[in-house]
Design a protein around this nucleic acid. Sequence first.
DNA 1: AAAGATTGATCTGTCAATCTTT
DNA 2: AAAGATTGACAGATCAATCTTT
Lengths: 149, 149
Amino acid sequence: MLNNSKDKQLSAWRLYLASHTHLTTHLDSHLKASGLISFDTLIILTALIESPNNRLRMSELAANITFSRSGLSRKVDRLERAGLIRREPAPNDRRGWYAVATDEGIEARAKALSVYEPELENVWRSVLSEEESAQLSALLSEVIKRATG
Amino acid sequence: MLNNSKDKQLSAWRLYLASHTHLTTHLDSHLKASGLISFDTLIILTALIESPNNRLRMSELAANITFSRSGLSRKVDRLERAGLIRREPAPNDRRGWYAVATDEGIEARAKALSVYEPELENVWRSVLSEEESAQLSALLSEVIKRATG
DNA sequence: AAAGATTGATCTGTCAATCTTT
DNA sequence: AAAGATTGACAGATCAATCTTT
């Protein structure tokens, strides 16, 4: 009864969700326990720092991120108060703003990565061999490509 | 420079996160657009309904779920107000409570599944072949097994 | 004292409405 | 009128403190 293709998909999906929850909560708690920036903040700073001049328009940043536009405004507010990001007006469009990673933000991200990356490597290595990891990457790239293409 | 095993892991991880965000937001918006229970509620009701007598101790439910214990209390409050769940005292331990899915909750879950499952099947089929899906399931079961075992 | 669960205070997220510029 | 972004009002999540029972 549980053998048809639909149920296979449903159980694959459940595994997917369960593994995601497990891994993210583990990694996130490691960051918090070390008194570092949160995972969300890490993602935002990374998006900025990987862009030219450490900056992205609010709308571009929102597109990279899970948050709604208004949620992002508030998140950037907080990060600005914390000194990790600053806002700059867009030169050619007076409606627009850039979010820019500050030096402090760049440093905070580097510190977080120095905890996060080894731990990610640890966790990942403890659950998948290098070959399996490559297999998984290949599958997921296909997922992304077909989902967005 | 991006060829060592650590960077492979990091990029696999990014793909994993990106695909998760993409798929969950898509599916969740489908539920909301249909005026049905949220995805979180679906997960909670499913956990209850798959347990004996449609019930689980609060602490057991919390273990199945992302939420913190206090977060779960509040969520169950709301679901109780909505009539989808009721609380019953545990017979042998007067500290404890069961969360029990009501008939209305069982029905609401069935309705949500009738939207969610076909859409999940749609999405999943559009991004992975049946063989790929089986491969992914196999990999993820290993992840879960090794992460929790 | 520890376990099961809830509550108070506070922070974060979201929707709809708003403001400014195009 | 539409695009870029923020704000007000409210719902949801989280931490620590609390209460009850073991």
